[in-house]
Design a protein around this nucleic acid. Structure first.
Lengths: 334, 334
DNA sequence: CTGTTAGCGCGTTCAT
DNA sequence: ATGAACGCGCTAACAG
């Protein structure tokens, strides 16, 4: 791997001159320009940006710290992030925390050491505050999907409360009165917001929000399955249920199928997060669909603005609207 | 962001001594050890690995260059890669080429500049040879999923030919004789291999392999949809079809549903690549399932072996077996 | 227009 | 057991 010094020697100039030609900075005679370019070509010269970064303090690398790339929601977000980053010549390191605060801490530590310019973070549920940690090291952060209590920081997320509210309203309009919720982890803002939307809709109608109708679990298929099994033991059963993320919804539908409960005949089901159309032959579930791709893009653009010092407002919470898509998993009560 | 020099000053020692304590290399008295550690703690010192990399020529960063993270097959591969990398304290930059040779070239260029230690590459269909380009710059490569003609390089891929062969054999055992293939892009080895498996199975049975039964397209939902629409114009129609990747299969099933062709009643369908169980409530399609996660893991481990100089054999092609999962999209001919 | 000097932060080499 | 000097590859700042 040749260095700029070797290129310079071959071209018969000083290293800095070669640098100027290669980076198109500063003056250089046409003659020198040609010689340097030829030398670089001949040696297959590739600049070592590490050395440059050491001076410039910029690596043009971002990090995306999510819970699990395997969830199509995050996959889509990731694609939005990578596209937006790549347009501005940034690369993205991706990390899966699996909701573990320890993993998150370890990743952030490494990322700081690697001098990433900024981090897009889906904070793992925990009491620790990762923001201060990053700020101390001058690493910019934008939160994705979830906000963090008592923390001033940019957030790009969707309207979880509003989405949940609308879904429950829709169920009520269909005549449902006994509506269960399969909620996500305690302490995760998106899960809390969906819960709040659920409660608001019920309260507005003067319905009691029984604790029996609230099931707590993880954002996972297995958890959705287990919660639904418990729910099905109730008597009388709820006539409708709200799965507060895509994996929970899939677990729920599996449990319902296994128990031979007809959807929507015996149970109406609504979910949060749509599955990408590319993955489903015949979309069935009524959902609140989040603009995952745009979320990734916007958050990245916001982060890059910070890096360019273009930010006008210090901290900003961007809340993206959610679309209710009514399909075949909901039915009016007779 | 404090440097090691500041830590040293605060501890009242020379930078190199602080370095020794922090990296646990070389001697240091217990007294000095304590003082340095306290100073580092107090200043929230985080080593700048860029500077270290500049000397060591190792960044502990890999790159994953795939076509599209949005395809659950690649998502799963990516997760395998990240897990394996993370275990050995490597980070992963991910890149989407969308099968574009240009994007691929641009990414590789940047990755080389960033001095990544190695690249996991799904070569975009093209005549260019990216391997030599990387080798010139001393960047290790392992190919994923696809091999490259006339190129000596490590490859970790699945048994596409064998999988296709088995799927077609299965269809023939069910009595099908007129079997169409929706093949992937020309020049992509996995697509070619599946095509070869298809042809082998037909030839073995002495069936003619009519060109009319071969449809060429991209690995996309839209392409699968279009090919199927064409296929359905045939008269008499094939009784079975083979979709050579997951997206093509989904497009095909959508087209069949839109044309109200019952599967498997009027058409048996087999596909390559399963959808993760977490994404499907009621698995329906008969497929050849590739161990995507393991593929990612293995390829990464192989790459890391190269980096550690532990590699015994120079070049190695690892071919992972595929599992045929028979479900409800296939039916015997009466 | 071109070159010299110096330093980014760290760790290897050699000395003390 | 500790430190000084030097260089990794590149590019500002300052000559000339």
């Amino acid at each position: 791997m040749p260095t700029i010094r070797e290129v310079a020697t071959l071209a018969g100039v000083a290293p800095i001159t070669a640098s100027r030609v290669i980076n198109d900075s500063g003056y250089a005679s046409e003659d020198v320009r040609q010689r340097v370019k030829q030398a670089a070509e001949k040696l297959n010269y590739v600049p070592n940006v590490l050395a440059r970064s050491l001076k410039s303090k910029r690596t043009h690398t971002l990090a995306l710290v999510i819970t699990d790339i395997t969830n199509p929601f995050w996959t889509t977000v990731a694609r939005g992030v990578e596209d937006a980053a790549s347009e501005k010549d940034y690369n993205v390191i991706f990390c899966n925390t699996d909701e573990s605060a320890q993993k998150q801490k370890a990743y952030l530590q490494t990322l700081i050491q690697k001098q990433v310019d900024g981090v897009l973070l889906v904070p793992a549920s925990s009491d620790e505050n990762p923001i201060e940690f990053l700020r101390q090291q001058n690493v910019q952060v934008v939160l994705l999907d979830r906000s963090l209590a008592n923390t001033e920081v940019d957030v790009v997320r969707c309207d979880s409360k509003g989405g949940a509210y609308q879904l429950i309203k829709l169920l009520m309009k269909l005549g449902h009165r006994k509506i269960a919720i399969l909620r996500g982890p305690i302490g995760v803002s998106s899960a809390e917001d969906r819960m709040a939307g659920y409660q608001l809709a019920l309260q507005e109608t003067g319905l009691e929000t029984s604790d029996q109708l609230i099931f707590s679990g993880e954002f996972s298929v297995e958890s959705g399955y287990q919660m639904t099994k418990k729910l099905l033991l109730m008597s009388p059963r709820p006539t409708a249920m709200f799965a507060s993320n895509n994996f929970i919804a899939i677990g729920a539908l599996k449990a319902l199928r296994d128990a031979q409960v007809d959807v929507p005949g015996e149970m109406s089901v609504v979910g949060f997060d749509d599955l990408p159309l590319a993955l489903v032959v015949d979309p069935f579930l009524t959902v609140a669909d989040q603009p995952a791709y745009d979320m990734g893009r916007l958050a990245t653009q916001r982060l890059l603005e910070h890096l360019d010092g273009k930010t006008i407002q210090e901290f900003q919470e961007t809340i993206l609207p959610v679309s209710i898509i009514e399909r075949k998993s909901t039915k009016a009560i007779i």
